[in-house]
C-alpha cells in the first residue's frame, strides 16, 4: 500500500449514477441476484476481536464483490440479538470492524461469543447472513537465542467469562511470515499444557533489505478459539537482494545501445555521407565553373 501512495497520483472520477454501473453489468429487471456473505472473526491478540465479512454476488458469469453495501453485525444472545454496528463494504466487498474483547456482549455455551453478520439485501440483491462463534484468546510471540540457535516462542492465553486468564493449551500454531501476496509458513509448533511452545527459527528466510521481518503466530479455524493471531518483528531474516544498479551484461534490450554499436554506426555513416558530400561538392564546382565559362564568353 505504501508504494501505491508514494508512487501514484490519486485520481477521482465521477459517474452519472449507479444506474450506469448496473446498465453495464447486465441483467436489469431480472430477479434479485443471490448474495453470499463470508463471515469470519479473528482474535487479534490486542484485546480485541475483528469481525470481517466479504459480500459477493452470484451472477451468470461468476461471482463479484458487492461494494458499498450495509452489513450489520450482531452479538447473538439467548434471548435477543444485540446490534453491534453497521459497516459498509469497500470496493472489494469487505466490511470489517474491531470490537474490544472484554465487553458486555452475551456469551453462549462454553464461553463462546456468537456473532452474526447480516446483509439485508436491496432491490436487486437477495439478503444473506452468516454466523461465527469463538472464545476470546490471545497469543504472544517472542524470540530468544540459545547456543547461537534462534528460537521463536509462542504463549497462548484464553480469556474466560469471569475475567480470568488460563493457558491456551494443546493447540497447533502456525508460524507465518507475510510476503508480497501471501503468508509463507515457516514452521509449526504445539502449545503444551502450560500454553507455551517454541521452535527453531529457520535461517534462510528473506526479510527486507535490512533483514527485518514480521513473524505471525496463527491459530486457524479452531473449534473453540476461531482464529487467533499475533505478530512480532525481528531482524533475523536474510537481507533482501535488491536489483543491482549495475548495467546488465547485454545491453541489447536497454534503452541505450551498446557503445560499440553506436561507434560503428557513426563511423559507417560518416564514411558514406562524407563521400556523398564530396560528390555533391564536385557538382557545385561544375556549376561554378559553368558560370565562370559563361562570363568568359
Amino acid at each position: 500500500m505504501k508504494t501505491i501512495k508514494s508512487g501514484i497520483l490519486l485520481f477521482v472520477t465521477l459517474f452519472l449514477g449507479n444506474g450506469l454501473v448496473f446498465a453495464q453489468s447486465g441483467d436489469e429487471g431480472a430477479e434479485p441476484a443471490r448474495t453470499i456473505l463470508r463471515f469470519t472473526c479473528i482474535n487479534t491478540s490486542d484485546d480485541s476481536i475483528q469481525l470481517k465479512s466479504t459480500l459477493t454476488v452470484r451472477r451468470d458469469e461468476g461471482s463479484m464483490n458487492l461494494a458499498n453495501a450495509l452489513v450489520q453485525y450482531f452479538a447473538v444472545g439467548s434471548e435477543e440479538d444485540v446490534l453491534i454496528s453497521e459497516v459498509k463494504t469497500n470496493y472489494q466487498g469487505i466490511a470489517s470492524i474491531k470490537i474490544p474483547t472484554l465487553n458486555s456482549f452475551p456469551r453462549g455455551e462454553m464461553d463462546l461469543f456468537n456473532f452474526k453478520a447480516v446483509y439485508e439485501g436491496a432491490e436487486k440483491y437477495e439478503s444473506s447472513e452468516s454466523e461465527f462463534s469463538l472464545k476470546p484468546a490471545k497469543l504472544k510471540v517472542s524470540f530468544y537465542e540459545e547456543d547461537s540457535v534462534r528460537y521463536v516462542k509462542v504463549e497462548g492465553t484464553q480469556l474466560n467469562i469471569d475475567g480470568t486468564e488460563t493457558p491456551l493449551a494443546e493447540t497447533d500454531v502456525n508460524l507465518l511470515v507475510p510476503k508480497m501476496f501471501s503468508m509463507l509458513k515457516i514452521a509449526e509448533l504445539y502449545l503444551d499444557e502450560t500454553g507455551i511452545g517454541s521452535t527453531e527459527f529457520p535461517a534462510d528466510i528473506i526479510g527486507d533489505s535490512l533483514g527485518n521481518l514480521t513473524v505471525v503466530a496463527s491459530i486457524e479455524e479452531n473449534d473453540i478459539y476461531g482464529n487467533v493471531r499475533a505478530s512480532a518483528d525481528n531482524n533475523w531474516g536474510l537481507q533482501k537482494h535488491l536489483i543491482s544498479p549495475d548495467r546488465p551484461s547485454r545491453e541489447l534490450w536497454t534503452p541505450i545501445a551498446p557503445l560499440w554499436m553506436i561507434i560503428t554506426l557513426i563511423i559507417m555513416l560518416a564514411g558514406v555521407w562524407g563521400h556523398y558530400v564530396y560528390a555533391v561538392v564536385q557538382l557545385f564546382r561544375i556549376k561554378k565553373s559553368a558560370k565562370a565559362n559563361e562570363h568568359k564568353s
Binding site: N18, V21, S25, M64, N68, A69, Y91, A122
Partner: peptide, 11 residues
C-alpha cells in the same frame, strides 16, 4: 468497476 462488473448496493 464497470469493466469488472462490480456492483454497488446503493449510492
Amino acid at each position: 468497476l464497470i469493466a469488472k462488473g462490480h456492483g454497488t448496493a446503493d449510492a
